Structures are given as C-alpha cells and as structure tokens.
Simulated assay, not measured.
Amino acid sequence: MLKEFREFALKGNVVDMAVGIIIGGAFGALVNSLVNDLLMPPLGLLLKGVDFSNLFVVLKDGSQPGPYIALANAKSAGAVTLNYGLFVNALIGFLIMAFAVFLVMRSINRLRRMTEKSAAPAAAPQAKECPFCFSTIPLKAVRCPNCTSQL
C-alpha cells in the first residue's frame, strides 16, 4: 500500500497540482494584499474616507450596546454583524484573481493553437475531381473509373 501511495504521489499530475496549489495560495495572498493595501485605500479616499473593511450592519447588539465605531469594536462586544465591506473586498479580490487566471489561460490556449498549427503539416491531397463527371478519383489516375474519360 505504501508503494502504491508513493507511485501515486510522485506522478507528474499530482506533483504539478501540488505546485499549482502552492503558487495559487501565494498568488491569493498577493491579490488580497493588492486589494486591501493598494486598491481599497484610494477608493475609500475617493468616497470621502470610507474604509470598506469597517462597513457592517449590526444585527444584534453585544454585551455593550452600540453604536460601534469599527468592526473590531463590535466583535469585541459580541455583537452579531453583517460584514458587507469585507464581502466587497473579497469580491474585488476574486474578480482580480479570475481576470488573472483568464489571462493566463488565454495565453496558454494561444500557445497551444500555435504549436498545433506548426506541428501538423498540411496533408497532401490524396484525390482529385474528374472534370467530366465530378466524381472523386485517385490523384494518380489517368482515366476516370466512373465515366471512363481520359484525364
């Protein structure tokens, strides 16, 4: 059983998948930082200082009644909140990640098409058309087998 597991784990597809997951996790952290640290602050500034990570609706007050200045204060008081600002951050991160994956897949597909075109040479025609009866005949034929015309 250990031998079978080792063979499975060391197959090319499994190793490639593991590398993809690791790179994907690192890329996800990079996109989250891009959204939270580079995109949202200027966007919040344009919207009169709104901090998206602190946009929430209190569904139920905690041990200390609201209003709460920040999401951290509401959570520390034990309030039940609907955190739509964090959702907006996650949505923007997802859209950036999806667009990046789209660009990568588009490039890969373009390269695949280019290699398929260069790898498959055009096949030489194997048949021709009889000019008299318009039937398909072998390329080397000198007489049509259908109408017996001289070619």
Rank of each mutant, 00 (worst) to 15 (best):
P145F: 13
S53H: 09
E129W: 08
N36F: 07
L71T: 02
K11L: 00
M97Q: 00
N32H: 06
G12M: 04
L82I: 03
L86Y: 06
E4G: 03
T81Q: 09
M1F: 07
I69M: 11
N36M: 05
S107I: 08
A98R: 04
K117A: 14
I23R: 01
L55I: 08
V35Q: 03
G93T: 00
V88W: 07
N13R: 10
S53F: 05
K128C: 05
A29C: 06
N146E: 14
L30A: 06
S149K: 13
F5E: 07
A77L: 12
L38P: 00
A127Y: 13
S149V: 12
D16A: 12
M40K: 02
V50W: 10
F132W: 12
L103H: 06
N54G: 04
S118I: 06
A77V: 10
C130N: 10
L103C: 14
G44L: 02
R110Q: 00
A127L: 08
K140C: 04
L47E: 02
K140S: 15
N36L: 04
G24Y: 07
A70D: 15
A120V: 14
D37W: 05
L91S: 13
P125M: 08
G25M: 00
L71V: 14
G44D: 01
F8A: 03
K117Y: 08
E4C: 01
M114Y: 07
V58Q: 01
N32T: 03
L46S: 03
A70Q: 08
Q64Y: 08
A9I: 04
